[in-house]
Design a protein around this nucleic acid. Structure first.
Length: 274
DNA sequence: CTGGGGATGGGGCCC
DNA sequence: GGGGCCCCATCCCCA
């Protein structure tokens, strides 16, 4: 099982980003691609913009992810964190309607305390003076309003109990915040080529891309001395020197240097009933 | 049509 | 926790 399949892929029909859309900032990618204003100033150093030099609506580590809440028990008042994306990148998801007094926490790592939550719930709810009757089934904390409880669960207990972090740009979920942040980069594409403007999710991807401009090919085949810019491509090339290829057809035992070639072979009809 | 190269995406691992 | 790297995969293009 390839590791890439551990998380489902379903961006859209075209798996590759349509870089032609970078210039217009239109289409489905416009909220994740940030072209550095310093794009063409110098060459050839890659530009890996820091968050502060991104546009005001750019990627904010605090605002681009949300902890997941159980799908089987959606809170009322449209509290689901997956109920739609912000209209522009970097905007915090709109607060729950019943929590209009809550402040914008973007840019602040410190979550509000439970006491603050309860106080805010009381302030925002005229019925909050009543006895606290909404209890968290995970930590037994009580809240006077359902909205207070819902917010508490969304921010703390559910996320902690499930250890689940879901992307706000797609519906992928990860068990760690670090994995989610790494994934988020595939949406925000913070690494921009100064030469052509293409954006990449990681610096080393950009470095590999820059080799296409410079012509640098640091990986050489020990058999034929052919050079490659990418190690993976060299590895694939090495298969061509091997008598026994890595990928074998189950039916005819023919071997192929690449998985894609095996797939083509299978789709061409070898593996249909003979 | 097949085989191979080029370019790129993305999760995991290690430091 | 983040960066760099590894490894695998895929798409596109061309000979």
């Amino acid at each position: 099982m390839p590791r890439s399949f551990l998380v489902k892929k379903h961006f859209n029909a075209s798996k590759k980003p349509n870089y032609s859309e970078l210039d217009t900032h239109t289409g489905s990618l416009d909220r994740r691609v940030i072209i550095s204003p310093y794009l063409y100033e110098s060459y050839p150093m890659p530009v890996i913009p820091q968050p502060e030099i991104l546009s005001s609506g750019a990627y904010s580590p605090i605002t681009v992810w949300t902890t997941a809440v159980p799908f089987h028990s959606p809170p009322p008042n449209g509290l689901s964190p997956l109920s739609g994306y912000p209209s522009s990148l970097g905007r915090v998801s709109p607060p729950p309607p019943s929590d209009t007094s809550s402040k914008d926490h973007s840019g602040s790592e410190s979550p509000i305390s439970d006491e603050e939550e309860r106080l805010q719930s009381k302030l925002s709810d005229p019925h909050a003076i009543e006895a606290e009757k909404f209890q968290c089934n995970l930590c037994s904390k009580t809240y006077s309003t359902f909205s207070g409880l819902a917010k508490h669960k969304q921010l703390h207990c559910d996320a902690q109990s499930r250890k689940s972090f879901s992307c706000k740009y797609c519906d992928k979920e990860y068990v760690s915040l670090g994995a989610l942040k790494m994934h988020i980069r595939t949406h925000t594409l913070p690494c921009v080529c100064k030469i052509c403007g293409k954006a990449f999710s990681r610096p080393w991807l950009l470095q590999g891309h820059i080799r296409t401009h410079t012509g640098e090919k640091p990986f050489s085949c020990p058999h034929c001395n052919r050079a490659f810019a990418d190690r993976s491509n060299l590895r694939a090339h090495l298969q061509t020197h091997s008598d026994v290829k890595k990928y074998q057809c189950k039916n005819c035992s023919k071997t192929f240097s690449r998985m894609s070639l095996l797939h083509k072979h299978e789709e061409s009809g070898c593996c249909v009933a003979h």
